[in-house]
Nucleic acid binder design. Structure first.
Lengths: 189, 189
DNA sequence: AGTTTTATTGTACACTTGTTGAATAAATAA
DNA sequence: TTATTTATTCAACAAGTGTACAATAAAACT
């Protein structure tokens, strides 16, 4: 990878900060390209040299933040002392804590006017994480892709409910609830 | 409810048809208000009298189509002869068939540039349907809302995977896979 | 029928959007 | 340092956006 042109770095940084500043005042959908550029002291034409829409600029933030989730997966986890249920790995509690940490950000990601794209990015990230700890001994007639999509999106379902409740639950409570849900079908049928 | 002004009905119909016509040619995000009004022979100011954005016009279609899903729930189901698994009710297969029936429409709903709003509308619809057949004997320390959000969104996860595969599976195959997923945790742990 | 109500139209306005081309400035490379 | 490359700026353009107001037309009401 060739050395980054310092002008580009400076421009992108200015746009990043301008977007963040504006997001404190107003909703993403009410922010215009002209406004970001005025705030960042960057020519509007320069914006379009790097991004097609505001959403593409926001997407760069998104990847920084989900990158944090990904990195958290590498290091050993300290927040939960004992895992009560063998079936439940430490994945989900990490995900819940991550969302809680960046609550301000995910309020934007889950707001109804933003493009579905961000949802897919989160979905794929969680999908990837769950895949790392996939159970190798699965019935071969079970489509692994479909199974992963099921599990990953089920967790996002809980997160959506969390968002709708204005994040009024704790991450630990949600994890506890997830344990209970998974235990449900463990009962003899 | 007071009688609808015929002018409004005519205007909305014209806009509906114009949007449908344009959707055959191009993507939703490439359609402008001006274009819809030109096609519908409706003054642009009139559009803004009824809708704030194109998305609100599209939302009216959405509710017509999910209304079809809701109605399908009322009548007895004929497509599946025998339910192989007692735990799996007929809900999901109906949902899969509904998506398949309106595949053209859901290709738009799941495209990455549309607002998240439509996803939520579908989510709430499926949530409502699942709620109708909710198991009454659940542990009381299990949050029913969270449990429903989990189940409903898990199914949408399968549908997303379906969409990403360009709808290359059959509805029956997906239902079969869902049965297998639900049976997974029935095995003694 | 005539009267009242209100949806629609046409025009205008300030603003944003996405794109273009030439001029300029600032980075990298020799 | 000088030369080269390229990011940025500036001005301008046609188009769309969202809103406002008076004029008009078409409903509903009696």
């Amino acid at each position: 990878m060739t050395k980054q042109d310092m002008r580009i770095v400076k421009t992108k940084n200015a746009l990043h900060h301008a977007l963040l500043d504006l997001l404190d005042e107003k909703l993403l959908e009410d922010i215009s390209v002209t406004e970001i550029c005025r705030t960042a002291n960057i020519n509007r034409g320069t914006f379009y040299l790097h991004y097609a829409q505001i959403e593409d600029l926001f997407e760069e933030y998104f990847k920084e933040i989900t990158g944090d989730l990904s990195r958290a997966y590498q290091e050993p986890y300290r927040f939960v002392s004992v895992l009560k249920v063998s079936r439940l790995n430490s994945s989900t509690i990490r995900i819940f804590h991550h969302i809680q940490k960046y609550e301000h950000f995910y309020r934007i990601v889950f707001s109804k006017k933003v493009p579905l794209m961000y949802y897919y990015l989160l979905f794929e990230e969680i999908n990837r994480l769950l895949l790392q700890e996939a159970d190798p001994k699965m019935p071969e007639d079970l489509n692994a892709q479909i199974h992963c999509a099921y599990q990953a999106n089920a967790i996002i379902g809980i997160i959506i409910e969390w968002y709708k409740s204005d994040f009024s639950y704790s991450a630990d409570y949600l994890n506890d609830q997830l344990v209970k849900i998974l235990n449900l079908s463990h009962r003899p049928s």
